[in-house]
Write a protein that binds this DNA or RNA. Structure first.
Lengths: 224, 224
DNA sequence: TTGAAACTTAAACATTTCGTTAACAAATCT
DNA sequence: AGATTTGTTAACGAAATGTTTAAGTTTCAA
């Protein structure tokens, strides 16, 4: 689920945009000023994309975007503004925004452009799972503990990646087999047990998590 | 220097755009049809970004973009078209384009948007890959180790360039075939293995990297 | 057009790696 | 305690990969 921060001082428009985004599969959070937006961002909430107006009561959009960019080079920023002059567009793009839409915006087109930006941003960010000193990289299909690689076979990696993607969630042997053995449960379910032993052994030096047996059900990873 | 492919059947507009891009620090190549564009791309030239019209004599922009996306998920594509209807925009973004501008386009805004896309795509400004004593030049399609050329065929070069562009990232045989054999997987996937053997042999004197087999998945290049 | 060289690919065989099973030990539940 | 579930290990066999060869294909110059 992608989280989108909407910074727009027009209450009604803000509400309209957020509602529309929420109806279309995003989790939108509306802010009426840059100050509010800072609070939302650094209050622990992580966002995947920012939609921002330019003219706002406290800090303007340019300044807001610049500040954000200093801290985060990656997050896509889309300006949604009434200003249709080239100078504003230039200023915006120069501060590092990714798209610029002129009001009144077609909400459906906004959706399309948000989709394109998220797709693009996602390509760049690698699929990593970081838990303390442990890093699982889905592109490399390798695990690093404190920088040192732990060699894993394909199935081993798939299993541990799955478990760690949903900590505390219990997976039955059948679920795991269905997913990583192409639904071919002809090989006995006990094979999963063997893999758990292998994983426990390979990650014995890792204090970040633990593979826990749920008797009668299956296995789960629990973070320490 | 960024290279931009401009696909636009209106000769005059094509010329105008290319000239403007060239005057602003890019290296633009104009094509009057999708067919021409394919030739330009497959002819060994590497492009960093594509600007394309939708309505064209042979294959339309949607089809063109789709074909390009099948082979290359990364290259930014910008549509520049007279069509201002939502359906076209939707169709475009769904095929994976990154931006959509309605004619008549302001060339200065085009520049801004191209700049934003290139920044986002994080493309390095060169088609050279330098790793220690090893140099791969994508324009020349040649490899130099310590100044001495290592002769490579087109397929050999494509493969090693791809692997080294994403060190540690694992590529499946299918991925590589899809990309460098025009999606023609009729030739057995084992062909890839043969090429890996050849590459390992040709780069046996190279201590900068190593081609590593990921059993059950494919291959990756690991820097030493 | 023709021949030579370079390139590509299928096939065959050698080699390596991995997955599975089976057996027994240990733990857990009733 | 007895039954069931789970932990662990090692060995076998299957599958994936490495490599070479030879035959087919393309390219290019004469």
């Amino acid at each position: 689920m992608f989280r989108i921060l909407v910074v727009e001082d027009d209450k009604e428009l803000n509400r309209t945009v957020c509602t529309y985004l929420n109806q279309n599969g995003y989790e939108a959070v509306g802010c009426l000023s840059a100050g509010e937006a800072y609070d939302a961002m650094y209050g622990g909430s992580l966002f995947d994309l920012i939609v921002s107006d330019i003219m706002m009561p406290d800090v303007d959009g340019f300044e807001f975007a610049r500040t954000v960019r200093e801290q985060d080079q990656e997050i896509p920023i889309l300006f949604m503004t009434a200003r249709d002059d080239f100078a504003s567009k230039q200023k915006g793009f120069k501060t590092g925004i990714d798209d610029y839409m002129v009001k009144p915006v077609d909400l459906d087109e906004l959706l399309l452009r948000i989709g394109a930006l998220l797709r693009r941003a996602k390509i760049v960010s690698s699929h990593k799972l970081e838990i303390g000193k442990l890093v699982l990289d889905a592109d490399e299909r390798s695990a690093y503990l404190d920088g040192e690689e732990i060699p894993l076979t394909v199935r081993e990696f798939n299993l541990i990646y799955k478990l760690l993607s949903y900590p505390k969630k219990t997976f039955t042997r059948s679920q795991l087999m269905d997913e990583f053995w192409d639904g071919d449960t002809s090989s006995g379910l006990r094979t999963v047990d063997v893999y758990m032993t292998k994983l426990r052994s390979k990650f014995s030096g890792c204090e970040e998590f633990q593979i826990v047996t749920v008797h009668g059900l299956g296995y789960k990873a629990v973070l320490k």
